[in-house]
C-alpha cells in the first residue's frame, strides 16, 4: 500500500466531482486529498487525487474513472518524475514580543509569508511539498495553532529535459 497521485482531466460540469469521488467511496478507499480547479483548457478541470492503495486496486479505480463519460484522461503519475506542491494557511498564536519573533523566524526559515497580523495571532501562507508543510506545522504547534487549512497536493509531470529521449 502506498499513496498514489492521480491526475484526472474532467469536463467542467455539475456533478462530476460526486461521480469521481463516488468511485472511491464505494470501494472503501479513503481519499487522502483531492484538489480541483481550472486547467489549461477552458471547459475542463483538473482533479489531483491522492489515495492510498495497492497497485492492483488503484489500477481498477483508474479504469473505472476512465469509464466515466465526463472523464477525459486519467494519469497515475506516482511512478513518473513529477513536481508536487501544497499550500497551507496557518493561523498561529503570536503575541507581541518573544512568541511573535519566534513565529517570524520559523516563517523565514520556511520561506512562508505572513499575510495577516492581528493583536495576538498571525496567518502564515506556506507552499511546498507535503513533508515541508508537515514540518512547519510541527514547529508552529508549540506556539498554538488555532486554525489551519491545506489545499491538498497538486502535481504535474516534469517537463522533458532533453531531445534524445532521456
Amino acid at each position: 500500500m502506498r499513496s498514489h497521485i492521480l491526475s484526472v482531466l474532467v469536463e467542467n460540469r455539475s456533478g462530476v466531482l460526486s461521480r469521481v469521488s463516488g468511485l472511491f467511496s464505494r470501494r472503501g478507499f479513503n481519499i487522502e486529498s483531492l484538489a480541483v480547479g481550472p486547467c489549461e483548457e477552458d471547459d475542463l478541470s483538473r482533479i489531483t487525487i491522492v489515495v492510498k492503495g495497492d497497485d492492483a486496486h488503484i489500477e481498477q479505480v483508474k479504469k473505472q474513472l476512465n469509464k466515466l463519460i465526463d472523464v477525459v484522461t486519467v494519469r497515475d503519475i506516482t511512478y513518473q518524475n513529477y513536481v508536487e506542491r501544497e499550500l497551507a494557511l496557518i493561523k498561529v498564536q503570536a503575541e507581541p514580543g518573544e512568541p511573535r519573533s519566534g513565529v517570524i523566524q520559523i516563517a523565514d526559515l520556511f520561506r512562508a509569508k505572513i499575510i495577516d497580523v492581528g493583536r495576538n495571532s498571525v496567518i502564515l501562507e506556506v507552499t511546498g511539498d507535503s513533508e515541508k508543510i508537515d514540518a512547519i506545522e510541527n514547529l508552529l504547534y508549540e506556539f498554538g495553532i488555532s486554525e489551519l487549512v491545506r489545499t491538498g497536493r497538486i502535481a504535474l509531470q516534469r517537463c522533458e529535459k532533453s531531445g534524445n529521449g532521456k
Binding site: 492492483a56 489500477e59 481498477q60 479504469k63 473505472q64 476512465n66 469509464k67
Partner: peptide, 8 residues
Amino acid sequence: IDPAEIGK
C-alpha cells in the same frame, strides 16, 4: 469491450 473487466 470494457477494459475495466480485464484483470478485475
